[in-house]
Computed example of a mutant assay.
Amino acid sequence: MSDSLFGTPFIAAPMAGGTSTPALVQAVQAGGGLGFLAAGYKSPDAMSAEIGAARNLGIRFGMNLFVPDVGQLSPSPETLARLEAYRTELEPDASRYGVALPQLRTDDDDAWQGKIDALLADPVEFVSFAFGLPGKQVVKALQKAGTLVVSSVTSVQEALAAAEEGPDAIAVQHGSAGGHTAAFLSGTPGGGVQAAGTTAGLVAQVRAAVGLPLIAAGAIMDSAALRQVLAAGASAAQIGTALVRTEESGARQPHKDALGDPAFTQTAMTRAFTGRMARSLVNDFVRDHEGAPEGYPAIHHLTAPVRAAASAAGDPQRLNLWAGTGWRSSREGSATGIVRDFLSGL
């Protein structure tokens, strides 16, 4: 399938928490790719400032938003009790670094409406969504403003629901992808029902169900994997883990180092860091909190001081080390060279 919608088959995934930067997007474009920035955890003003920085560099880019889960913003008494119990469970981790845990917060919708309003007032080329669907009204408003809209899914069922809203493309995320799952329909512990064993297999399933351009995501670490998902029907691939260790990545140094450390031998899906399933290298924190409850972004706020302190101490054992299953192939250097290597093999 043609990649004309994006102009390239290589898309740098939006990685929230500081990893995606205008410098990374610039380096990706220099190599022949397209980069996305991440609005997650930022204020609307901070998002707009990053858009301005990217425009000053004269680069193409997209922006990714988290769709808030209304259910998480109005937790039941039982859910609140589980979250408070988890806060107590986290106290030894906080004590290790001499930091205090914040009080439980359940009202954070990631400034959803403020970000939508800002993107309508000052449109960008692409806007993608994760953790849910933005709604037909938002999709149509962004498209009217001149923006191409991308919805993220993890299953055929989610793809069919997304297609009903009329986006311009769908990002298809396999369970092998690093970081948070984009799943929003129930059915499995990770969210959407996912039958395919590989990213290419899932793309083929979604390709058979919907006619929109597809972006493949999940353990795409080299040109061979890129060729596979393109052959399965994707217009492009969304690459994350392969870029985390690059010079232009804003990832914390202990995270970058852990991806190249042979002491880490596996990844796992975990709620321990944020209350939402995400794939991370398995470290002490993941092992210590295997029973972490669902509760995003409340748990994200609870663990934030611990993660920040662990990073400052250079301790990867209590840091969220997001990584896809192909993390062993990640490498250092400029993102420009990595993108060129991907594309040269096509």
Rank of each mutant, 00 (worst) to 15 (best):
I215G: 07
G190A: 14
A242E: 11
T199M: 05
A163H: 13
T246R: 05
G166Q: 12
A234R: 00
S223W: 03
G233D: 03
V244P: 04
D222K: 00
S223K: 03
H174A: 12
A219N: 12
T246G: 08
I220H: 02
P213H: 08
Q173R: 00
L243D: 10
T199N: 06
S176V: 06
L226E: 06
R245F: 08
G179Q: 01
Q238V: 02
L226K: 00
A195F: 14
S223Y: 06
L230P: 06
I239Y: 05
D222R: 03
H180I: 02
A195I: 15
Q228A: 15
A224L: 13
S186L: 14
S235W: 02
A232C: 01
R207D: 04
H180E: 06
L202Y: 01
R207G: 07
A204C: 08
M221C: 09
A217M: 11
I220V: 12
A237Y: 04
G190C: 13
R227G: 14
E164C: 13
A182E: 12
A161M: 15
D222T: 03
P213I: 05
V193D: 13
H180C: 03
T188Y: 10
V244Q: 09
A161F: 13
P167G: 07
A225Q: 15
A196I: 00
L230T: 07
R227H: 13
H180R: 06
L243N: 10
V193G: 10
G187V: 03
V193I: 15
T246K: 00
Q238D: 12
P167C: 08
T188F: 07
H180M: 05
A177V: 01
A225Y: 10
A224C: 12
V193M: 13
A234C: 00
Q205V: 11
A237E: 01
S223E: 11
A161E: 15
E165H: 13
A171R: 12
A200F: 07
M221Y: 08
G197L: 02
G201I: 00
A242S: 13
A242P: 05
V193Q: 14
A195E: 15
R227I: 11
T181I: 09
G187Q: 04
T199L: 02
A161T: 13
Q238T: 07
R207A: 09
G240W: 03
T199K: 03
A216Y: 06
G166D: 11
L202G: 06
T198C: 02
Q228P: 10
A183V: 07
H174M: 04
A242F: 08
L226S: 06
A217D: 11
G166A: 10
I215E: 09
V229Y: 01
A208F: 11
A183L: 05
A216H: 05
A204M: 07
